[in-house]
Design a protein around this nucleic acid. Structure first.
Length: 467
RNA sequence: GGCGACGUAGCCAAGUGGUUAAGGCAGGGGUCUGCAAAAUCCCGAUCGUCGGUUCAAUUCCGACCGUCGCCUCCA
């Protein structure tokens, strides 16, 4: 039983066999830097982060590239309206993107190239396409000739005839075919531009991803990912350009696309230009990283998901339960205790792997994680050995790491800690003296400040929660 | 109009042609606790509607209803 992955290209789950044994080349479409990321973007990046973590957990060496689109119409417009430069705007959003992804515990890719870094590669590809008859120049623009690429439409499963029938785009009459797309755009006055054989201009959107993936990963990739909304035309066009240029098929062995997030039931997907989104920043202010990740991974990546406060809060409670199971965990023990709990925990691990092997079925994997948490708590209540408990906890930690959960509670403001400790100590003395009213008063008042006291047989412990 | 996906308990969400339809949250009851909290135990669904195939369907097929995605920038 090995890993199976659903491939958008074949619309089937396939055995995962990378081009080079043991090594995975993975490219995930990154953000367009005209604005801040929202939780829909976060969903995509969390999904692919989890896929990457799992591939590494299974022993693959993963080389991951994620681009930044730092030159594009909308960025130019936004920069102009803000009175800043395209470069400054991009820098600002790149810094913010990294900060937010770090906060979401999304591991950075091995390379984060920017479109503007690979202009020579882009020009080289376009020249190659023109030389082979796959592209043509038109007044300083260069277009891809879709009719020369018989496989055009193989990813999105549509033919050129169908597309013409439904096209609502204003057709540029100069183009040979309405579906021909821009590889290079002549720049207008005042726009950022690069010298090229066709005059001053800038790259079209689709070509940058082909260039960056080729430059950093080679001419063929194992995994290319993104949201389902970029299947057409973006990824379709990438296939056309790349395969036409290199002559190597397939450009990408496994295409993986996540379904989209929407803001409310019955509404369309979250999207920046409609304004119906929750920014990552906003989400991070209200919910923990673990809650956000657990919420997103609780649904399979190919099923659409609705952002609902009620359900994110439910994930917050779930995360809290997992944290409780990991309470007092001090690291993996050097040896396996080999008892019943240990066997059960290892069975959970096998089930977790089986779930993830089945096209990254995180909901099933999460169910296993909760099973293990319950076993641990149960064992602790019934007084199992510390050795055994630590072993089971080490497996819980191992599996939740794959999901990118931190399971760290919110730290209390450090300057408050000694005072909290003092209050807990005083309250313990009150309890010893059976001064219940006053002891309860302290507990209630601290709870209002976000400090939760829990009295146990070993004494009182406390934790800080976001209030 | 073309192509595609989905509809499972109060909310979210896995899954299977036939023994008990995962898991989380919420709710009810019990244990523990000075009281709580946490933890733990017990309790809930016949799977959108209507047909069909089958010894047997929630799971396959068809129709219908509803929702969503792509066909234009979009994670």
């Amino acid at each position: 039983m090995g890993l199976k992955v659903y491939n958008t290209l074949t619309r089937q789950k396939e055995d995962f066999v990378p081009l080079e044994s043991g090594e995975v080349k993975m490219y995930v479409c990154g953000p367009n830097l005209y604005g801040p990321a929202h939780v829909g973007h976060a969903m995509s990046y969390i999904v692919f982060d989890t896929i990457k973590r799992y591939l590494r957990y299974r022993g693959y060496r993963v080389k991951h590239v994620q681009n930044f689109t730092d030159i594009e119409d909308r960025i130019i417009e936004t920069a102009r309206s803000l009175g800043t430069s395209v470069k400054e705007l991009a820098e600002q959003y790149i810094a913010r993107f990294f900060a937010e992804m770090d906060a979401l515990n999304v591991q950075r890719a091995d390379y984060h190239p920017r479109a503007t870094e690979v202009i020579p590669k882009i020009i080289e590809i376009i020249q190659g396409l023109i030389a082979k008859g796959y592209a043509y120049e038109l007044d300083g623009d260069v277009y891809f000739r879709v009719t020369r690429f018989p496989d055009y439409g193989k990813l999105s499963k549509r033919s050129l005839d169908q597309m013409e029938a439904g096209a609502r785009v204003e057709v540029d009459v100069r183009k040979e075919h309405p579906m021909d797309f821009a590889l290079w755009k002549a720049s207008k006055e005042g726009e950022p531009s690069w010298d090229s054989p066709w005059g001053k201009g800038r790259p079209g959107w689709h070509i940058e991803c082909s260039a960056m993936s080729m430059q950093f990963l080679g001419e063929q990739l194992d995994i290319h990912g993104g949201g389902q909304d970029v299947i057409f035309p973006h990824h379709e066009n990438e296939i056309a350009q790349s395969e036409a240029y290199t002559g190597k098929v397939p450009f990408v062995k496994y295409w993986i696309h996540n379904a989209l997030l929407r803001l409310r039931e019955g509404e369309e997907k979250m999207t920046r230009h409609l304004g119906n989104f929750i920014s990552v920043q906003e989400a991070l202010q209200k919910y923990s990283t673990d809650a956000i990740r657990l919420f997103i991974l609780s649904s399979h990546y190919r099923s659409p998901l609705t952002w609902k406060e009620e359900n994110v809060l439910a994930a917050e409670r779930g995360a809290e339960r997992l944290r409780a199971a990991l309470k007092d965990y001090a690291g993996p023990p050097p040896t396996s205790p080999g008892d019943a709990l240990c066997e059960e925990a290892e069975a959970v691990r096998r089930e977790f792997i089986a779930a993830m092997d089945d096209d990254f079925n995180t909901p099933r994997a999460i169910a296993q994680v909760f099973e293990l948490a319950r076993m641990i708590n149960q064992a602790r209540d019934s007084g199992v050995s510390a050795h055994s408990l630590a072993y089971a906890q080490s497996i819980l930690k191992e599996l939740t790491d794959v999901l990118g959960l931190t399971l760290k509670g919110l730290p209390a403001p450090s300057e408050a800690e000694p005072f909290i400790a003092l209050l807990v100590e005083v309250r313990s003395q009150l309890r010893a003296a059976k001064q219940w009213a006053l002891a309860d008063r302290i507990r209630e008042r601290l709870a209002e400040l976000g400090v939760i006291l829990e009295d146990g047989p070993e004494g009182t412990t406390w934790k800080y929660i976001s209030s």
